[in-house]
Simulated scan of single mutants.
Amino acid sequence: MSFNPLEQRGIPLDRQVRNWRELNVEPIDPDRCDPYTRCRVITMNGIEVEAILFSHQLARHTADPEIKRQLARVRYIEAQQQKVVNWLLPGVSSVLETTIAYEQVAVDLTAWVARMEPDPYLQQAYQFGVLEDFDHLYRYANLYEMIEHRKAESIVDNLTEVMPGRPTRFHHRDAYDNVRDPYDRHAVNPLSKLHALTIMSAEQQTMNFYMNTGPTYMEPIARQLYQEIGLIEEEHVTHYESLVDPGETWWEQLVNHEYNECYLYYSFMEQESDPKVKAIWELHLNMELEHLRVACDLMRRHDGREPQEVLAPELPNVLTFEPNKQYLRELLATQMDLTTLGAGYVREAHERFEKMQEQIHGGEAPPSDRVMAGHDEMFGREYRVQSEGEHPDPAMREK
């Protein structure tokens, strides 16, 4: 693939505003769509939300009214894009069904990034996080069968396995140990910047989703599980955002954001199976090419540098949603018992970890354990029968 977004011209900004009819997109059919189409929708919603929030933060840190106005013009279009993307999700899906799709995104997006990440330290960060999202998917699957009496496989379509990961009770760590070392912006592969921004944005959107939807359930165990996993998503956002070099200037970050949007819309356009959704990815790509051009002009004027100094000369291979079953099973077999210590990882529980476990659990079973007990009481069995390749020791699945 050879596609350099810096050399492409998109739709002029003054032609990008859409009317209500154009914004009123037809949602995907949850019973017939490719599950990875839904994953792409959820991912791009998170990317667009991050673009909007970043633009607001930049606007709040500049006194120049012309910069504020330029950011506002682009941000309004980003807000329209976010509405179109997020409104592709069907209203007939329950919050819990959407939650399971969010966790499918977290598992297969993070696993793919971990497989493709060229930096070993960054790769380890993604490998560590994905085993926790893997277990979140499993806990929500148990809750889904308890409340709605359906299997999560009906949503993920067996593209992503639903089985225990690193047990959720062990995801609660002292905040000190959630901060990783950042990459070096001068030496890192440009692809690593895109990976870090993508995963951070996706996890941030999941955190926001759980913060706002968790208390909408009536069932006490559902409210409690969302509260617990919502706290862990806060840890994950801290984990991933700390990978980004804080020395990047506002303008460097701005062009990285816009370049990443071009990369993802191009990637999803290339693999999308739904013609209507594919047309949206193509339209948004052509909008983002112009947003990138605007960001590059701002960088030249206010940072005194050429965007080519920090961006890849052409887009990397497309980011792909695909099954990662074997890769995840290898991680389960080798990294299940990891926890964090400072900016690194260890296999033994340490004083801060044990203290946090005692503080947060208070000697009681957390919601993630109680949902398992409730499922067993209701159905008289575990969520799924052990299959070939699954860890044979039940104690290790809960340890």
Rank of each mutant, 00 (worst) to 15 (best):
M146Y: 13
M146R: 11
I147V: 15
I147K: 01
E148R: 07
E148H: 10
E148N: 06
E148K: 06
H149L: 11
H149K: 15
H149Y: 08
R150E: 11
K151A: 13
K151F: 12
K151D: 15
K151M: 12
A152D: 05
A152H: 02
E153P: 01
E153V: 09
E153R: 13
E153N: 15
E153Q: 14
E153A: 15
S154P: 00
S154V: 08
S154R: 09
I155F: 07
I155P: 00
I155Y: 03
I155T: 01
I155Q: 04
V156D: 00
V156N: 02
V156R: 02
D157A: 14
D157T: 10
D157G: 08
D157W: 09
D157F: 09
D157P: 03
N158Y: 12
L159F: 10
L159W: 08
T160D: 00
T160E: 03
T160M: 03
T160Q: 05
T160C: 09
E161S: 09
E161G: 03
E161F: 03
V162Q: 01
V162W: 02
V162T: 02
V162D: 03
V162I: 15
M163T: 07
M163E: 09
M163S: 11
P164W: 04
P164N: 05
G165F: 00
R166T: 07
P167L: 02
P167H: 05
P167D: 06
P167W: 04
P167K: 00
P167I: 01
P167R: 00
P167M: 02
T168N: 07
R169Y: 05
F170V: 00
F170P: 00
H171N: 11
H171Q: 08
H171K: 05
H171P: 04
H172K: 13
H172R: 13
R173A: 05
D174G: 06
D174S: 13
D174Q: 08
A175R: 11
A175I: 12
Y176M: 11
Y176L: 13
D177A: 05
D177L: 05
D177H: 08
N178E: 12
N178A: 08
N178W: 15
V179R: 13
V179W: 10
V179M: 09
R180C: 05
R180S: 05
R180M: 07
D181H: 09
D181V: 10
D181I: 09
D181M: 12
